[in-house]
Nucleic acid binder design. Structure first.
Lengths: 224, 224
DNA sequence: TAGATTGTTAATCGATTAACAATC
DNA sequence: TAGATTGTTAATCGATTAACAATC
């Protein structure tokens, strides 16, 4: 359904799977298109996008080829349509329900963040072990006892968990989440969790980016 | 200094540069080692780490070969030493000073986050354009008028900026930061900013991870 | 010695880049 | 038509995996 061109019979289903590097770049193209649209540009070309986001134009073209999107030679894409198709493709137009596990610093920040909703993720509740937090509200959302998580998942059929517990509890909490029927874990802990291979995990450790940043700085400054 | 083995004269400086994928994995090994250390394990092997973080052991070994770290055959590494060396290598033991530009939702969350300090990043102030924010304190840090940024950078010699402004101002603010003497930008906006090539940029758009997550979910559920 | 480990070298795989055909 | 663009196919590059030598 989402695959664009004809498919050779012998090619496996891998054909449909868009590579992760491409997938990571698509939101940049979308973001650029949105900014252009706000500035009144009705048409947008892949070469223009390439310049705007500083990525090789052939790569942009290749990335976009994974999407069911028809560009017009010499003209490019209609900005509005480009945005709509890309947003739908990336799942940003859906409403994916989720809950936060571990209502600490980062957990409550995510519960407060309004941006998530605009990108298709709706946080419905928080879970914690702390007696002082349980029963309180954060950003208008209830914080429940983690012991009630399994029945919550069953009842509301919410299968995306946002994991923001301390590192030492990351793996055990992850195991517990899987046991409760969670299918997708957005992992913000510093630990790389192990899960059965039918579970989708997205590791988003902010601090890991610092490692890359500091190392690049060190390289430029001649390893002082 | 940080390179481990002998170097062939003809190999370029690229030899020293650790590839980004490796750099991204190192914090996972560190985190795993820390958890093990807390559990009282004095020795740790790369094969053990490989199992713990679910990454091929040869890959772990190769990643670690970039670091000046001596393992002992049949035994592995001393956990404490492993942690120390890796933390130093990744720059987590230094204190890198920085400031937040755009004290909104995400910006103030980062100003509040205590984790950053543990990983070597110290936030010293916030900057914004909003009259209602300027002059207030967030997490004990002053919020200044963005017009005063240039003199602030000069005076305190703080060259790392955390960019958390709305998407439409991302590129122009980035240009302004470079003009003010900023050398490193941690970019949390949805926009991929363009900078001169002596400037280090780390793009950390949380929402991009949602794209990967949603697409993987879609693939598993058969593209409904 | 046998076995477990580090850590290197060669083979494979996949992503990016380059070249170019097709289109308007 | 000439030129700008989409979008594909082939060549290159780099990262991962596999095989294995060295060590204790």
């Amino acid at each position: 359904m989402s695959k664009s061109k004809r498919i050779d019979g012998n090619k496996k289903t891998k054909e449909n799977i868009i590579p992760e590097p491409s997938l990571r770049r698509l939101p940049w193209y979308l973001s650029y298109a949105k900014v252009m649209y706000e500035q009144g540009k009705d048409q947008i070309s892949s070469t223009q996008i390439a310049k705007g986001v500083d990525i090789d134009s052939a790569l942009v073209a290749k990335d976009l080829s994974h999407i069911d999107l028809q560009g017009r030679t010499r003209v490019g894409y209609k900005t509005k349509q480009f945005i709509d198709v890309l947003e739908r493709f990336l799942g940003f137009t859906n409403s994916h329900k989720s809950f936060v596990v571990g209502v600490g610093n980062l957990g409550s920040a995510l519960m407060n963040d309004k941006g998530l909703k605009q990108f298709g993720l709706e946080v419905e509740a928080g879970f914690d072990v702390s007696e002082t937090l349980i029963g309180t509200e954060v950003a208008g959302l209830m914080v429940y006892n983690i012991d009630t998580l399994k029945s919550f998942v069953k009842k509301h059929n919410i299968t995306i968990a946002i994991l923001t517990v301390p590192a030492k509890y990351a793996q055990s909490t992850s195991d517990f989440l899987v046991e409760c029927g969670v299918k997708t874990i957005w992992n913000f802990t510093t630990v790389r969790i192990r899960v059965p291979n039918n579970i989708v995990v997205q590791n988003t450790c902010l601090y890991a980016h610092l490692a890359v940043m500091f190392t690049r700085i060190k390289e430029i400054n001649g390893d002082v």
